[in-house]
């Protein structure tokens, strides 16, 4: 399946968002995720189904003013 992760084109066999994070090596609990502009909470990722061409954003905290 063809998806976008943080702006990059990716191929995946994972069906759920939690699997996407594992497949692409995202670890830790200080991550937030959105799929097609909708925020997906950490406790919803295991059941959140991913579809062809989904646009996934994975963000983490950084320094800010």
């Amino acid at each position: 399946m063809h998806i976008h992760v943080n702006g990059k084109e990716r191929e995946t066999k994972a069906c759920f968002l939690a699997g996407i994070l594992v497949e692409f090596g995202f670890e830790g609990d200080w991550l937030a995720t959105a799929v097609n502009n909708e925020v997906v909470a950490a406790n919803e990722r295991a059941d959140y189904r991913i579809y062809e061409s989904d646009w996934i954003e994975i963000v983490s905290p950084m320094q800010g003013g």
Binding site: N6, W30, M62, Q63, G64
Partner: peptide
């Protein structure tokens, strides 16, 4: 104050910063 940006280090970037913020014991205003 803190910000959010795309995670580029597989979660390690956020985790390192998380450890630092925890030690500061302050309110966070994203």
């Amino acid at each position: 104050t803190l910000s959010l940006r795309r995670e580029t280090a597989g979660g390690k970037q956020g985790s390192r910063f998380q450890e630092l913020i925890k030690t500061l014991d302050v309110h966070v205003l994203p």
